[in-house]
Design a protein around this nucleic acid. Structure first.
Lengths: 255, 255
DNA sequence: CGCCCTGTTGAATCTGGTCAAACTAAGTGG
DNA sequence: CCACTTAGTTTGACCAGATTCAACAGGGCG
């Protein structure tokens, strides 16, 4: 996802549209009146190396994280060590919120590449919530969104063929990029074939085979981690989705 | 699930341990002080016939429901009509809460058999929340629980063999029954083989085949909808779960 | 430059899906 | 009360898609 990082506009704490706090509806109360709030609250920005862990399942819930650049995967695991990736997360998305019910993270988050992350501590977050009551409601909305995402993934895992899964996957990536003003037709995959296969529930080798099949059929051009979607409409047919023309970004972002 | 209904204790609005409101932590403020609250709020109790719809996906969020007897399935669907069952719900469980973020239900709920249900309107619910602030927190907890449940299901759908899926399924049913003081070794399946298969992501026929295999191996005795788990330990091995002795019910219930 | 990780391809295998048919239990209506 | 219908379940035969195993290619990085 190097092209993402390149395109990433320089990001000050006030104008930063990538800052996930926008998704909590904080823009409402903050932009006009008290412009110092974000600086006070978005305490620590730091870098993650590829493979570095942001938090582990079962760990105490201390902070939420907003991705500024790079990408992060989250996954859960069985007792005997099998993993199921539950999401890939790109700049502008918030991580860790679902820990709020149990007070501990229920999945593990690991950087897929060098990534920049904002850490917002729980206390800061609660202080924000006090000042801006709608934050509570926004949190419910975000958990709802997450449930929706899980439901989509369950349908994918339970009911779709390998081709459908991959077409669906590529289209969903494309849509999320479009939403953030990146090209919906051309992007880098920051995750390995193995990660993709794990996420959509098929073997790594099947991912390869189907990608080459898609390429032979003129749907995509793929070379290692770089992919061009050359026929989104036909991909939509395979994924059995109604074709959706690219959406323009709005803020606060819909995930 | 006829045996469930038979065992179901008579259920007044005050002492009703099955009433899902206990899960919202309402017992704390209510039991001692204002014993009239439940009567005021748990307005409508009514019966559902088998196959009757409680709510549909996309419908406006008007009420949450607490199951008093019987059972209900919830499911989501693709554009082209394939369904994925996301849960089977038994007495004591609350339904519809996850609609709170989007203000519309995100799945469909249908009775599996004749069932009795309490309807709690949104307004009533909000009034309760005003009087008992902890309700907000309890809601977050419950959404967290739901996310946890989805994660388990995703692991099942994405990473498990057919045998593991069914063993896991039977054990999870057993555990939920134990939690409600029903027998963990012997119960009725209120859902069809097709529903079971849909839920765990395998074909109806595979469900049958594996159930008979389990029976031949002395793990279960199954005859139509009635099942006896004769070797829970060995089932746990197949499901790759650590063996858990049956848990006794506590209130408020953990789902 | 050489190693290592990731990705790709082929071949054999197998799990689980599909289709079809028989069977059971429970209604339903005459 | 019995014949008939229907929905649900079970079993068998066959097959396809996906997994597994193995070998190999090629980039990237020290």
């Amino acid at each position: 996802m190097t092209n993402l990082t390149e395109q990433d506009p320089s990001c000050t704490s006030i104008s930063c549209q990538h800052c996930g706090l926008y998704q909590l509806g904080l823009s409402m109360g903050l932009d006009s009146a008290d412009t110092s709030l974000p600086d006070r609250y978005i305490k620590r920005k730091f870098m993650l190396k590829r493979g570095q862990v942001l938090y582990r399942a079962g760990e105490e819930f201390t902070s939420i994280y907003s991705i500024r650049s790079g990408s992060v995967k989250t996954y859960i695991s069985t007792d005997d060590g099998r993993l199921q990736i539950t999401g890939f997360h790109v700049p502008g998305e918030l991580l860790g919120l679902n820990a709020i019910g149990e007070n501990r993270y229920n999945c593990e988050a690991v950087a897929l590449e060098a990534s920049s992350v904002c850490k917002i501590s729980l206390e800061c977050f609660q202080e924000i919530a006090l000042q801006i009551p709608s934050v509570n409601y926004q949190m419910l909305r975000m958990m709802s969104k997450e449930i929706k995402h899980h439901q989509d993934l369950m349908l994918l895992l339970g009911k779709m063929s390998a081709e459908e899964r991959l077409a669906t996957y590529l289209l969903s990536l494309s849509r999320r990029f479009a939403l953030r003003n990146y090209s919906p037709n051309q992007f880098n995959l920051s995750m390995s074939r193995g990660d993709i296969g794990n996420y959509v529930g098929i073997a790594e080798e099947t991912v390869c085979r189907i990608f080459t099949r898609f390429q032979e059929e003129g749907l995509i051009i793929i070379r290692r981690r770089h992919i061009i979607l050359t026929d989104i409409e036909r991909l939509s047919v395979i994924a059995r989705e109604p074709y959706q023309p690219p959406t323009v970004a709005r803020y606060p972002l819909e995930i």
